[in-house]
Design a protein around this nucleic acid. Structure first.
Lengths: 341, 341
DNA sequence: ATGAAAGCGCTAACAT
DNA sequence: ATGTTAGCGCTTTCAT
């Protein structure tokens, strides 16, 4: 039951602990014969390397911190899963921190992870502005990649979906299916997803209808806000309700139904993100699917970029193309009632 | 930019590193005067303890592993959030592992966390039987608490909701609102949530209707299964569809609506867990709410139980009482149409 | 109350 | 290719 250490393996295999270390860590060339002996001894004794000691000596914990605003936001668990798999695949462990959507908690969590000597930080900032200081400080200490949301220019590398492209897909689809009076339910604030989707709507919708950019209601990314916003926008009788994410769209859908509106016959509803809820809504939500696995892979790749080579490499801002998922909530106006897809 | 160590603080404050350690870790009595000086020096230099070195020396990483079947199961993120907060509150960090619902991956993840020297393991087993071996082996090495699902008798301490009590609440509610022909859509397998909810339904429903225990369909905990199961059970015209969790209930609701059934007028539908989807469904789902914060707190408490005291303390199996949340999907049969609650 | 010194288990120079 | 020797930064005896 006592811990088996390198020393034990060295004793058992009749060579020095340095050699054993080299064999087991594969760090230097080693005699084929010795290697076999050592591995056998390690196996026999049930040796398990002590990552803590290794980390202290090598100054690398093999651990990355994952900091996110709220794990309960239904969009994040999928991202977390992909990240966890991508990282474990290269033998890095994931220290998880949930910030409760609060920049102060976020700063505390970042510090806690830094104190634990994470090799790198993967971070979805709580707030574009209020997270900046803590994020910039952290980025000065370890490689840091921003995910999904930005945090001001030049703070760190970032990976996100191309929000503008996604919104353009939605608007093109609505135009192609004959919608002419769109409106937009978005989120206030400067978070990149909120701002970019809003800006893209305003830019794209003007081509459809000069009045469209005016039909905008801004709140937060919640179901409740989706419901409330419909009360503000429905009186202007839009034929499409473009929502900044699926939660808002779910709320909008619910409220429209309560008001007796015919979706999609009278009015189309679209979301963004393609969380599971989108497929379950009635009618099922047309939405924009984020390339989660690719986002995760790209983030992991960015983390592994050797930061020591050459001058402080320019920040990268990777944007990945999303995909439109057409479901019943935006079926052509002629198609009354819609079916589930 | 170089790391500030205890030695630097000792030099700056003119005392030994041992004293500094004692001041900063609050481990032993120390002169008030010295303490002040040391703290000032630490502050001035921006000293940050190195948890890795501390862990190597003290044989405690201050880290607990959280192993779960699938973070994308919508029930888990809430539990994860509560656990994260409970643990960070006592300065423990959380290493997250997602098992992709696969016992083999689960075993690998457990080993990875053990190699990282987690102080303890919080684990939601993938499978009652197939997880047992790996879990038992892990429990022999570190304190381990099972969450939400069991893993055979006596393997480890466990914390879960009282599934039988929850199901009894549902059946009592249905009986009180005049339902007489319930049926049950559950999950096959031996996972405790599946088995206990199923058994409780069968026990409780027999009192309502001798034929009820026969109207049971067993699949998995998914929306798809909920949909499919309705096709099997609806022909027998139940007046209540009791589901083993909210995902199943969401699927059942959707399919019933497609078949033109009137919920709740003609048939009530109930879920279990109270995930956010439950409130969003139409009609909103009557369900059983798990006391998540209490479950998390209890799990954290169990982890902190000093395992070194006395004989290997008997395993604890803590069961917490759930709460019935009545919504529109089970409004009395007379109340046609229901409103959103 | 404080200091000196010995490691925790490992990797990385430096020898050989 | 292998062994020897220093530590990584900290906590913890053991002295004083």
């Amino acid at each position: 039951m006592a811990e088996v250490t390198l020393k034990d393996v060295a004793l058992a295999s009749g060579c020095s602990i340095a050699t054993v270390s080299r064999v087991l860590a594969g760090t230097r060339p080693v005699g084929a014969e010795t290697a076999r002996t050592v591995r056998a001894a390690a196996e026999a004794l049930g040796y398990r390397p002590n990552h803590v000691a290794r980390a202290l000596r090598s100054r690398s914990t093999g651990t990355v911190g994952l900091v996110l605003p709220q794990i309960t936001n239904p969009f994040f668990p999928f991202l977390v899963r992909e990240l966890e798999h991508a990282l474990h695949a290269e033998d890095r462990a994931v220290l998880l921190a949930d910030c409760d959507d609060d920049p102060v908690t976020e700063a505390a969590r970042i510090n806690a992870l830094l104190a634990r000597r994470v090799d790198a930080l993967l971070l979805i900032p709580v707030d574009e502005r209020r997270s900046r200081e803590a994020v910039a400080a952290a980025a000065a200490q370890v490689p840091l990649v921003l995910l999904d949301r930005g945090c001001g220019p030049g703070v760190a590398d970032s990976v996100a979906v191309d929000n503008a492209a996604g919104m353009a897909l939605v608007l093109a689809h609505l135009a192609a299916t004959g919608r002419r009076r769109p409106c937009f339910i978005g989120a206030a604030g400067t978070a990149s997803a909120a701002a970019e989707r809003r800006a893209a709507y305003e830019a794209g919708a003007a081509a459809l209808d000069p009045g469209a950019p005016g039909r905008v209601a801004l709140g937060d990314f919640s179901v409740e806000w989706g419901r409330a916003a419909v009360d503000r926008l429905w009186p202007s009788r839009p034929d499409a309700v473009v929502c900044a994410n699926d939660l808002i769209a779910a709320g909008a859908l619910q409220r429209l139904r309560q008001l007796g509106a015919d979706v999609p016959g009278e009015v189309a509803v679209t979301g963004f993100d393609d969380i599971p809820l989108a497929g379950l809504a009635d009618p099922a939500l047309t939405t924009v699917r984020q390339p989660l696995a690719e986002l995760a892979a790209e983030a992991a790749r960015l983390l592994s970029r050797n930061p020591a080579a050459g001058p402080p490499a320019a920040r990268r801002a990777v944007r990945l193309a999303p995909e439109l998922v057409v479901r019943a909530s935006s079926a052509g106006p002629g198609t009354r009632g819609g079916g589930s897809s």
